[in-house]
Nucleic acid binder design. Structure first.
Length: 757
DNA sequence: AGCACGCCGACT
DNA sequence: GTCGGCGTGCTC
């Protein structure tokens, strides 16, 4: 018998499966989903069995030994790997890497033992101060020296293969047939007629000493079981009265239990979507079914878990947890010990004992796409919902245009929660920044916003400022000749970072100190232009010196905890003005009267058909942060007050109608299927020729495609867009291109969901 | 010639 | 990810 084994190596040059002979002793024991230790080249690796078949032409080596006693991954996960391979063009072993959590992957540690210290030469002499040490990553540059020393028997290198984190075990106790004599012992013996843990026993008031006696005389047996932990808080909660709309939404979705159906739960902030999820989860729990709730980040997972854990046992997965905690959550969900898994998109592949519902919260967010631009997380969830035959609920205050279209086509059930739990009135003011300029106000804050902030601070209340940075590049420019310093490799303008006082390339990370004299003309009039969030911050700090001002953006939140701490400090009213990028617009339950929205103009001009939708969503989301518990005011500053996105900012149906119309005229999704191809070649000329040839061949061969481009957007990197009606046509085309244009000097990437790469 | 280093392709 | 093959370029 032959096993198809997929190795845990992430390089694309590795095939997705290698065939190995199954030794007679392992026949019947090995099944698909188990990992095995196999020889690979000169090394030993761990691989996953993806198939078993009678014969193979390629197999030459045998499996060394099994690594697991039972399959590591479920049939569903294998199915998802297959789905990612087929639908998203991801090689199998890379799909595996996404589906299986890091903690269950293998660490290959090497230990170096010094055999003959007197023969050690530099640099090994300095590195190997101890006779036994773990091989460090930084030693890789001396790898050759290590290998030479090993062959001369001066040192020996030993490789250890182990799983990063192991499943935690604990002991369980159960009564045997042998009845003890004393009444006290009998009481414990009866208590243990069902399996109990040590915590159960101690909390009932029994002692360890008594348990020990019973074990010794054979009245109680012990065995090792997996330790599982879930979150459940027992704090009594206020009884909540649901609105008619909430009850209706719960009923609609609950009726669809056990079938695959898609819903969109549209609700503004504070409309009580979380309560709907909770009630649905409670219904499922009564029949021992579980729910998967996916949301955006650590803070939102925690917020949701706080809401649900008083009623149900919850498992959480997000980046703020330790590896062990993530593994505990993963296992608790897999074994059915928790009712709900609340996770960031990273945890969406977690296997369930009995899945009954999937919720994709904040479904408009691009994070569902971010982790790999070829797969859409929401599509993965569709696949899981179909597999389990369960409803999939998208939740969003600002649903994507695509989903509205799906609803119009009857492919999606649209449910709207209009009632705000807190009855308040919201207001929006659009400030024309061109007029501000004409009136002599050159600062980034309009008079209107400045006054509103002053007023709010005087009332001892808080302000949230959205300073979009998407599309903004605060680059450096010479005011004399117009010269802009660019990256040596990418030829793109270097972005100016005020805090770090550096010029940085956002494509490759190339960094140089700031320039004071122009390279081109020698002028000293070279200065940063454009506006960045840091400038907004320093401006506001100057304008309101007594206010406590904090800033949140991707630059200063890389350190763990900064993001969550800042959000908490704002909620606790320790910060007066919070300035942030998109990350402050999402789902947080703030209680503030004023929101300022700045710097959205470049976002409207972003070179993608999604620009209008994204800007609209960002503004609406941010507006939603104000007026949750009191009347709210949003002030939008723009140079394009007549842009339809701004004009319709308070009239959603008008926005959707106009945007859908534009998409239809421009033949953009959802009216067409879009595929973006990115080509990277060695030279521009050859690459461009190859693309032109490809374009002509496709046009001649297939009539249903419209092709736009190619355009060079980075050095030696070209973009080509292909539009068509049927999704299946694109898959066929991709297969064909891959087969026909396999060429090491030209790399082609495919992007299905984004025209902006 | 002798070897150090780096790039490339194979690994079942 | 690791190794061997093979070319280049430097040193004895």
């Amino acid at each position: 018998m032959i096993a198809e084994v997929m190795l845990d190596l992430k390089t694309t040059q590795i095939l997705s499966a290698y065939d190995y002979l199954i030794p007679d002793t392992l026949k019947g024991f090995l099944v698909v989903g188990m990992r095995v230790v196999v020889p690979f080249g000169s090394t030993t690796r761990v691989g996953l069995i993806t198939g078993i078949k009678p014969t193979s032409l390629d197999a030459t080596k045998s499996i060394i030994e099994p690594f697991d006693l039972e399959p590591l991954i479920t049939k569903e996960q294998l199915h998802l790997i297959d789905y990612l391979e087929k639908q998203a063009m991801i090689p199998k072993h890379i799909a595996y890497d996404k589906v299986v959590p890091n903690v269950l992957k293998i660490d290959y540690t090497k230990k170096v033992h010094v055999l003959q210290r007197h023969l050690l030469k530099s640099p090994l002499l300095e590195l190997l101060t101890k006779d036994h040490s773990v091989f460090q990553k930084t030693w890789m540059k001396h790898y050759h020296a290590f290998k030479t020393a090993e062959s001369k028997k001066i040192i020996s290198i030993e490789t250890f293969i182990e799983q990063k984190k192991s499943i935690q075990m604990m002991i369980s106790y159960e009564a045997t047939d042998f009845k003890p004599k004393t009444p006290k012992q009998q009481a414990l013996w009866h208590f243990l007629s069902t399996e109990r843990t040590i915590d159960d026993i101690l909390s009932e008031g029994y002692t360890k000493a008594m348990l020990k006696i019973l074990i010794e005389q054979g009245s109680v047996s012990t065995k090792s079981i997996e330790k599982i932990s879930t979150h459940r808080s027992w704090i009594a909660q206020d009884h909540k009265v649901l609105t008619t709309e909430q009850n209706q939404a719960i009923e609609d979705i609950a009726t669809a239990f056990k079938t695959y159906q898609r819903f969109l739960l549209k609700g503004v902030s504070a409309s009580g979507k979380t309560e709907v999820f909770l009630q649905l989860c409670r219904k499922l729990q009564q029949t021992n079914q579980q729910a998967l709730i996916v949301t955006l980040d650590e803070a939102l997972v925690e917020q949701m878990a706080d809401y649900i854990s008083p009623y149900l046992s919850v498992s959480k997965i997000h980046s703020g947890l330790t590896e062990q905690q993530k593994l505990d959550a993963y296992r608790a969900v897999q074994l059915g010990a928790s009712d709900v898994l609340i996770t960031t998109p990273f945890g969406m592949f977690t296997p369930f004992q009995s899945l009954g519902l999937i919720v994709a919260d904040e479904a408009q967010d691009s994070i569902y796409l971010d982790y790999a631009k070829t797969v859409h997380g929401l599509d993965v969830l569709v696949e899981r919902a179909k597999y389990h035959k369960v409803p999939l609920v998208y939740a969003s205050a600002t649903p994507p245009v695509q989903l509205l279209y799906d609803a119009q086509m009857g492919k999606l059930n649209w449910i709207e929660l209009t009632e705000k739990v807190y009855q308040t009135e919201d207001d929006v003011i659009v400030v024309d920044m061109k007029k501000e300029l004409e009136n002599g106000n050159l600062s980034m804050l309009s008079k209107t916003l400045h006054e509103a902030i002053s007023q709010t601070l005087r009332n001892r209340q808080q302000v949230l400022i959205l300073a979009n940075r998407q599309g903004y590049a605060p680059y450096v420019m010479c005011r004399s000749c117009g010269h802009v310093p660019t990256c040596e490799k990418c030829d793109t303008p270097l972005v100016y970072h005020k805090e770090k006082h550096k010029l940085k390339c956002h494509h490759c990370g190339y960094t140089i100190p700031p320039v004071y004299v122009c390279d081109a003309c020698g002028s000293e009039k070279i200065k940063p232009v454009g506006i960045a969030i840091e400038q907004v911050e320093s401006h506001i700090k100057m304008a309101f010196p007594r206010a406590k001002v904090s800033r949140l953006d991707a630059d200063n939140t890389t350190k763990k905890g900064v993001y969550i701490d800042t959000i908490k400090a704002f909620k606790d009213k320790e910060i007066d003005i919070l300035i942030g990028t998109q990350m402050i617009s999402k789902g947080h339950d703030f209680d503030i009267p004023l929101v300022g929205i700045l710097l959205i103009d470049s976002m409207l001009k972003a070179p993608t058909y999604l620009a209008n939708e994204r800007t609209y969503q960002l503004i609406r989301q941010t507006m939603g942060r104000a007026g949750r518990k009191q009347a709210g005011l949003s002030i939008i500053q723009t140079y394009q007050p007549n842009h339809f996105v701004i004009k319709t900012i308070q009239d959603e149906s008008a926005f959707y109608e106009q945007e859908l119309n534009r998409r239809m005229l421009a033949k953009n999704p959802p009216y067409t299927q879009l595929l973006t191809l990115v080509f990277r070649g060695k030279t521009s000329e050859q690459t461009e020729k190859a693309i032109q040839r490809l374009k002509q061949t496709v046009l001649a061969r297939y009539s249903q495609f419209e092709i736009i481009g190619p355009s060079e957007y980075q050095q030696h990197t070209y973009k080509l867009m292909i539009k068509t009606q049927k999704r299946q046509d694109l898959s066929t085309l991709i297969e064909w291109i891959k087969k026909t244009y396999e060429n090491p000097s030209l790399s082609i990437s495919f992007y299905r969901y984004n025209d902006e790469v």
